[in-house]
Computed example of a mutant assay.
Amino acid sequence: MVRLIIFTDLDGTLLNQEDYDYQPAIAILNQLKKQQIPVIPVTSKTRSEVEGLRQEIDLSDPFIVENGSGIFIPQSSNNWWKVAQADQINQYHLHSLGCSYTKAREGLKKISADLEYNLQGFGDLSEQTIQSLTGLPPEEAKLAKQREFTEPFISPKQIDAKIVEDTAAKYGFRVLLGDRFSHLIDAQAGKGKAVRWLMSNHQLLAEEEVITVGLGNSPNDLEMLEAVDIPIVIASVQGVHPGLVSKGWQVAPAPGSQGWAEAVAAIYEQYL
């Protein structure tokens, strides 16, 4: 008996990059739900952002937020997942790999002081500024500021990326570099680490073979894609991200949500 477990990035993957639409994926998502196949978001988004999406598209499985810093397991799904090491928060079991948001903010200030450059994080920006920089609707920009573990900051174009990364490492942090925003996360956190922790706490039935699938669109998803059995790259309308081209992984047949749906449907047909 095969059990599929699907780990997925959101922006540019399950959700279109341009308009955040997910309608092309609804049919296969419903089919996966009927077959009790977990669909687990692995994202840089906050818990507040993911909760809204989960409610919209009726996901009930665990989810991983803020670049692998927090793993939230709904109490209703704990028959599949060992939760002895997890804390309780609202209706979830939480396993945290990252530091607190307060510590991340303090870290950004220390790094700024070392670099002699004012790194501007989400905590320094208004909702309106975040909205204009990201294209998020006003309500989602508000949710994006409700951080618990990590601090996104405007990527400094004037400073060599390696200098920023090395400075962050001095204080126990990693930097996930992006074109517009970079993310300051705890050195112990990461999408791949979170996926591996969750799978190490998955409760197998004796006759089961588990196959993990990962879908992502950027180098930020690299560690997640390396942690699964079947990595699938979702291209943008411009093509596969240069940072993922050399991996030789399967590429979805279309960009965004449409490509996600077609790739997942093909895996579903192959194994089930």
Rank of each mutant, 00 (worst) to 15 (best):
M1P: 14
F7Y: 02
D9Q: 06
L10N: 07
Q17D: 11
Y22V: 02
Y22W: 07
Y22P: 01
Y22F: 07
I28T: 02
L29P: 01
N30H: 10
Q31L: 08
K33P: 00
Q36A: 04
V39D: 00
V39K: 00
V42R: 01
K45W: 01
R47S: 05
S48Y: 05
L53Q: 00
R54A: 03
E56R: 14
I57V: 04
S60V: 05
F63L: 01
V65T: 04
N67V: 02
I73P: 05
P74E: 07
Q75H: 12
S77P: 10
S77C: 14
S77M: 15
N79P: 10
V83A: 09
I89C: 12
N90L: 14
Y92I: 11
H93T: 09
S96T: 13
L97S: 06
S100I: 04
S100F: 09
K103N: 13
K109D: 15
I111A: 05
S112C: 15
A113L: 12
A113P: 10
D114P: 10
D124L: 08
L125M: 08
S126G: 02
E127K: 15
E127A: 13
Q131W: 07
S132K: 10
T134M: 01
T134K: 01
G135C: 00
E139F: 15
A141L: 02
A144M: 08
Q146T: 01
Q146S: 06
P152W: 05
F153R: 08
I154E: 09
K157A: 15
I163H: 05
V164T: 06
D166K: 10
A169N: 11
K170W: 04
Y171L: 01
F173P: 03
V175A: 03
V175P: 02
L176F: 11
G178P: 05
G178K: 06
G178Q: 06
S182R: 04
H183V: 09
I185F: 07
A187G: 03
A189T: 02
A189I: 04
K193I: 03
A194S: 04
A194K: 01
V195Q: 01
R196Q: 12
R196C: 10
M199N: 00
M199W: 00
S200L: 10
H202W: 15
L204N: 15
L205T: 15
V213E: 00
G214D: 05
P219T: 03
D221Y: 04
E226F: 13
E226M: 15
A227Q: 07
V228F: 09
V228C: 05
V228P: 04
V228I: 08
P231T: 09
I232M: 07
V233D: 05
A235L: 09
A235S: 15
S236N: 08
Q238W: 13
Q238A: 13
Q238E: 12
G239M: 04
V240M: 09
P242R: 06
S246R: 13
Q250I: 14
V251W: 11
A252W: 01
A254G: 06
A254N: 07
G259Y: 11
A261F: 07
I267P: 11
E269D: 11
L272K: 13
